[in-house]
Design a protein around this nucleic acid. Structure first.
Lengths: 257, 257
DNA sequence: TTTTCATTGTGTCTATCTTACACACTATAA
DNA sequence: TTATAGTGTGTAAGATAGACACAATGAAAA
């Protein structure tokens, strides 16, 4: 408890408000400029970046805590947010040792800072609409911004691994579930949707087959409207049917050999 | 710390040796008599059953803790063991309230027993060979035995939900990954393997197509030996090729739309 | 000893799903 | 007015998954 006061010089964070030893890490994906982006925070001191994290109130459901943390960083609610893995290595330092990390983060190297206690981190990944996000740093950070997923710098702790696994999970789910709409604005064109899929999967897709397949989910509604402004034939706009979407997601996948 | 002493009357368990607020719950599947089984523990006092649990030493990797706990309950090492979901509801009591549960388990209703603190539980599921298991109770329990998965009684906490989700995960993985061998002895016949799959998936499978498919994974080796003793034509014995198996598992699934 | 019976071993044909592919149309820019 | 780049649309071929039947065999029963 003594050492907490020292740490409090740096932060006003009261760790006792939360379940100790457990944190939530968020891999928040957005899509912009034909690039898949991930939201990172910059530590107030030093040069380091890391994933947004959250903690769980003593009487709070873990999923709710994840939503709350996401809301705090992005201003958004009600988005696609899903637990994907729990990280429980005893030593979660990767690019830097614990000592190095503490120094980089501006903590005296010997204090018992709750943030440096043994943590089990539940990884969640979110799909959000880029343009709606208001990136907001937390008490420990002074900047919150998007990074291209393939330009992410070496992050603190094992956060690079987390992004890698979140991306793997996203790709897998994208391949057999109709998620992905979550990354686009309300109305979007088929080419936009396709480019999104191509970017995430990292491979080109056939235009006609893609359309056939994605319409096959029967969760998209084609509007009369078309999108003008491009120097080409105006594509139709689509909107997705939230009710059907939920139903398809619930049914889950139809795995039967 | 005071209240610990009271609890210690009942148990010799020293919670401080472990990361608090975090537990590991194991859904251990076995296969016997054409039935999928799950290993449950019986609380020393009362009539209640629950899943085997474990805790994480402060300097121990979570996966290692899961393996250790599995080893303690079954005597087995090196089996298929996989994290499948983390359960983080604030209230994890299901069939009984917290008060009821504490009474049923023989704790005074007002103490601060570590076992009843807010927990986040990482669910692991394991596939083990039934005949090799030596079911072993822990400090809190006086019996450890197999139950048919569809005859599991109402369990303490949210353990019924855990089994349900573990089973769902198992079925999904079984449908597109060559797991399942883990539930059989070293040498097994194709019909045995098929019956295992049919039991887990809860549906009959075509004999010829099943064989075609399972051999397609190219991880089974057919022996010269045949299994005699049945009142019928003697089936071939198979063994699986661990090296190839590992490789297939690593590659993961080939999801590409 | 012979017969019966339940079970194993095996390949092909069909239906379904997946993939490859081309041309006419149109909104802007030149 | 023309050029250009990107959109809208259907079909045929290939790959994959699913249905299906008969001969062989080992033990048990006759």
């Amino acid at each position: 408890m003594e050492s907490r006061k020292e740490a409090d010089l740096l932060t006003k964070w009261d760790g006792s408000a939360f379940v100790p030893h457990v944190s939530i890490d968020l891999v928040i994906f957005g899509f912009h400029d034909g690039q898949l982006k991930v939201l990172l925070l910059h530590w107030r001191t030093g040069t380091d970046w890391l994933l947004p994290s959250g903690f769980i109130h003593h009487d709070e459901n873990m999923d709710d805590a994840a939503h709350r943390s996401l809301q705090e960083r992005t201003g958004l609610q009600a988005v696609f947010l899903q637990q994907f893995h729990t990280f429980g290595e005893a030593v979660r330092f990767k690019h830097f040792t614990k000592q190095e990390t503490m120094i980089r983060l501006g903590f005296p190297g010997d204090i018992d800072e709750p943030l440096f206690r043994r943590h089990v981190s539940i990884g969640y990944y979110a799909l959000v609409e880029f343009s709606e996000v208001v990136p907001t740093p937390d008490q420990f950070t002074d900047e919150c911004r998007w990074w291209d997923v393939d330009e992410v710098p070496p992050l603190l702790f094992d956060h690079n691994d987390m992004i890698k696994l979140a991306l793997k999970t996203l790709r897998r789910q994208l391949s057999y579930q109709p998620i992905g709409y979550n990354l686009l604005p309300e109305k979007f064109t088929m080419p936009e949707l396709q480019r999104l899929y191509e970017t995430i999967l990292g491979q080109p897709l056939d235009r006609r087959n893609f359309q056939k397949r994605v319409l096959g989910y029967d969760i998209l509604e084609r509007l009369e409207e078309r999108k003008t402004g491009g120097a080409h034939k105006a594509p139709y706009l689509y909107r997705f049917d939230k009710a059907r979407y939920e139903k398809v997601l619930e049914d889950g996948m139809s795995f039967v050999g």
